[in-house]
């Protein structure tokens, strides 16, 4: 099993005719993902590699029964694209776009609360259930299908590094999710932890966090109270100076809040195996995840 996506997920791509949208749609199709539709306003009726393109999400859903949307729409229009997908009843929305204004995302979150959609991202690599479906921009071949480990992260390439080390140790993954590096996002660490805890095929979880906000501290409390499966964690940004945004819009230590040290302490306190040396996270997982 897996969480959120599998081989039956019917994906539509918003922004399918753009450079990024085209490139990654092809990569996803190559991996085996079922891409059933694309949406680019004004290009309805066209095809992209045989995938039908529609003017609106709702017409695409009517024609194809898509239940998941992957969004590559540029930042000025991305908030609207997420809301359009929600309005059309798409169950799972994956927003890859980086650079959406924070006030736009605040309004998007309120809009999401009016429907039943789950948003992953924005500013994220997407989600992959190895061997079944890749809805995102991650390199598929570094993943190992079959589980038993679930991976959750705020970062892109840092996640690839972790997954690569897991695969090298012979440890497969059920699902890997990038929840994104923005300060206001959709699905949280806690949502993913909860889903992995309930997934019978997932036996352990790797959580990759970074400086900024208190999502890791909240996750630590949740792990302590609700998660029975072993959790390994890495927190990036021990050396990051306060007040500076480290690449991701959400990666900033403000005053005394959001430091890596506080996150590590909270996670250790919750019984999480915290890896201090990223180069060794594969070995640590091999040690911890002996089932």
């Amino acid at each position: 099993m897996s969480i959120f996506v599998d081989k039956n997920t019917r994906v539509l791509v918003q922004g399918i005719t753009g450079r990024e949208g085209q490139f990654h749609t092809r990569q996803c199709v190559e991996y085996g993902t079922r891409i059933v539709a694309g949406v680019t306003p004004g290009k309805g009726g066209m095809e992209m590699d045989g995938v039908p393109v529609f003017n609106t999400v709702s017409s695409a859903v009517d024609a194809t029964n898509a239940d998941c949307s992957m969004i590559f729409v540029p930042p000025p229009f991305a908030a609207d694209a997420i809301m359009e997908a929600t309005d059309a009843g798409i169950g799972l929305i994956i927003a890859i776009t980086e650079g959406i204004p924070v006030l736009d995302m605040m309004r998007v979150k309120r809009f999401l609360s009016t429907g039943k959609s789950r948003l992953i991202g924005p500013n994220c690599p997407g989600i992959i259930t190895p061997g079944q479906a890749k809805v995102g921009i991650m390199p598929g071949q570094i993943h190992k299908p079959g589980g038993p480990i679930g991976v959750i992260s705020r970062s892109g390439t840092l996640t690839y590094e972790v997954v690569f080390q897991l695969t090298r140790e012979g440890i497969g993954q059920t699902t890997c999710i990038g929840i994104g590096g923005d300060p206001v996002n959709g699905t949280s660490f806690i949502d993913c932890l909860d889903a992995f805890e309930k997934d019978p095929d997932t036996s352990g979880i790797v959580m990759v966090g970074e400086i900024g906000g208190n999502a890791e501290e909240d996750a630590a409390t949740f792990i302590r109270d609700k998660v029975t499966k072993p959790v390994v964690s890495f927190i990036a940004g021990m050396t990051a100076p306060p007040g500076r945004r480290m690449g991701h819009a959400g990666a900033i230590v403000s005053g005394n809040s959001g430091t890596a040290a506080a996150k590590v302490a909270a996670l250790k306190d919750a019984g999480v195996y915290v890896c201090e040396d990223l180069g060794r996270i594969g070995e640590l997982c091999a040690d911890v995840f002996q089932f």
């Binding site: 990036a236 940004g237 480290m246 990666a251």
Partner: peptide
């Protein structure tokens, strides 16, 4: 480094 999270790490 390529990627912000990995660059911090």
């Amino acid at each position: 480094v390529n990627g912000a999270g990995l660059a911090m790490a």
